[in-house]
């Protein structure tokens, strides 16, 4: 391979990496509440399944290293780890397994954080700005390996409880899923 071709390849590779760093410097106003039409269940009368309509904002956050890294920081700052630990759970359910009581899509998770859930999840509406909720939700998805590996955060410096998000095996949400036995 000629030197030129090598250089070209390198440049291409470098650009390919840009998507994971892409970011908008003007986030939506803090009080915005993005509306996504999602369902909690796969069941709906008729053969077509539930009616959903999402804007694509979720992908934007899930594929973006900056948002996920921010989400990782906010996950601790907002005390999510107090109940969900580093994903294994505690007073709140585990987040690294495939069991999603209130839906495992990023849109579902945003709704869960914003509205709260009946058995103990608090409602954070008006307490966390909209784009930060999306960042946290994106990070939560990364904890079970459901975001691109090149965008997921690496290991942190603290006590090392489990593989970092970018090394975590993928556990896609399963309706009626369960934590692995061991």
């Amino acid at each position: 391979m000629s030197a030129l071709a090598r250089l070209l390849l390198l440049v291409l590779l470098a650009f390919a990496g840009c998507q994971r760093e892409e970011r908008s410097f003007r986030a939506d106003p803090v009080a915005t509440e993005s509306i996504e039409k999602v369902a909690l269940v796969p069941l709906s009368p008729g053969p077509s399944g539930p009616v959903t309509d999402t804007s694509g904002k979720g992908k934007e956050y899930e594929n973006n290293a900056y948002h996920l890294a921010q989400g990782k920081t906010l996950y601790k700052w907002m005390n999510c780890n107090g109940c969900h630990a580093n994903g294994g759970g505690g007073s709140g359910p585990a987040l690294i397994d495939d069991l999603w009581i209130y839906g495992g899509s990023i849109e579902n998770i945003v709704q869960t954080i914003r509205e709260g859930r009946p058995n103990g999840m608090p409602s954070f509406r008006g307490k966390i700005p909209d784009d930060q909720i999306w960042q946290i939700a994106g990070f939560v998805r990364s904890m079970s390996g459901n975001v691109p590996k090149d965008a997921a955060p690496g290991r942190d410096d603290a006590l090392h409880p489990r593989p970092a998000e970018n090394r975590t095996p993928e556990f896609p949400p399963v309706s009626g899923g369960a934590p692995p036995p061991r």
Partner: peptide
């Protein structure tokens, strides 16, 4: 009791 995920040793404030 809480269906916790044993891959995270810090779960349940470290008891897991």
């Amino acid at each position: 009791a809480g269906d916790l995920d044993v891959r995270d040793g810090t779960a349940a404030l470290g008891f897991v």
